[in-house]
Design a protein around this nucleic acid. Structure first.
Lengths: 181, 181
DNA sequence: TAAGTCATGTAACGAGTTACATGATTGA
DNA sequence: TCAATCATGTAACTCGTTACATGACTTA
């Protein structure tokens, strides 16, 4: 499961608490994997049981901070998984279902929702571009690790651009469609 | 939930059995929403209980074909949902986690997996383009419904192209990265 | 009539979401 | 000390996947 490996990766970069992990998933990790704090605590619990990570100090108590770090077995697990394979996920987007539904219903206007998505993707793109400018200033020769980190962000940027181009094209095509079927 | 509405949409286009629905999800519906036959039967059962769809003839029996059609309440539900809003889903891709993991581990080569994905996206793109050529031959003035149907397919095509461009760029960047961090 | 296939269905589990609860810490 | 906030945690539910089971139909 990828959440385990995303957590291992983040903890390897720097050990931290569950809440800090949740914050990272809201920020930099968020553009390629998401998780709520409930998922994270549940997963951390399972990983602790399995001996992949360990909390420094106290046993599990409400309200008490617990700093997690990756154990050897955790690194081994990540290494093993990282060299493996996984299939790409096809799109699964509600907006597409709405569009198909409106095609069969014939009476619903989806252009409003389309424009709204356009705005949302606009915002996301700007956010990603800001991170890109801040974290990856122009350089002649980046390290392999930097290049890999940047690649993930670039994927996010590419997708947002792709969405925006599609939104614009679709709005254009729809405005030129025949009024009567 | 979108599966309900995807099923309603497909049944409105043409009533059919659960197995036929599963086949449609494997084909044309599949490029924007996926579902296995188990999910579909479960959902059809729930929708039948809720009075959104009805099976012509027999009560539920193993092995016996059951043709479903949309009831008025089903059309009403779809109409209502279709005019609503939904947030775009951020990417959640295993490959991205692998890349980030390999960045922190430093010893795993992901270019092999990257190239494999490139091939897979190549195939998917070709499949979509074939559907496009077959279902939407060049026309001066398409109906709104056709334009909407085509928009969904175009989104799939745009994404595959985006993936391919990203794969190529990333492989290029990685080959030029500094050998020593 | 036996083998193979098709349509339907059940069971169990894993992943993700939503709502809520409780102990610790901070600062007015 | 009271309120607000933070970190952690529980419970219940939905969605999705995997594995398997069974009745009907086809055809060799």
């Amino acid at each position: 499961m990828s959440l385990t490996h995303a957590i291992l990766t983040s903890l390897l970069e720097r050990p931290c608490t569950g809440a800090e992990l949740a914050r990272r998933f809201d920020k930099s990790l968020g553009y390629f994997w998401q998780a709520t704090h409930q998922q994270i605590y549940r997963e951390l619990g399972a990983m602790e049981r399995d001996g992949l990570v360990a909390a420094r100090g106290l046993p599990s108590t409400r309200g008490q901070q617990r700093h997690f770090e990756v154990l050897e077995a955790g690194t081994a697990e990540l290494l093993d998984w990282c060299g493996g394979q996984g299939e790409p996920r096809p799109i699964r987007d509600e907006l597409m279902v709405r569009i198909r539904a409106s095609a069969v219903l014939g009476t619903v206007d989806v252009t409003r929702e389309l424009r709204r998505h356009q705005g949302l993707h606009e915002e996301t793109l700007q956010r990603y571009q800001l991170i890109d400018a801040k974290d990856f200033p122009p350089a002649v020769n980046r390290s392999a690790a930097d290049e890999l980190q940047r690649a993930v962000l670039q994927a996010g940027i590419a997708f947002e651009r792709s969405w925006l181009a599609w939104c614009a094209q679709t709005l254009h095509d729809l405005s030129h469609a025949a009024q009567q079927p």
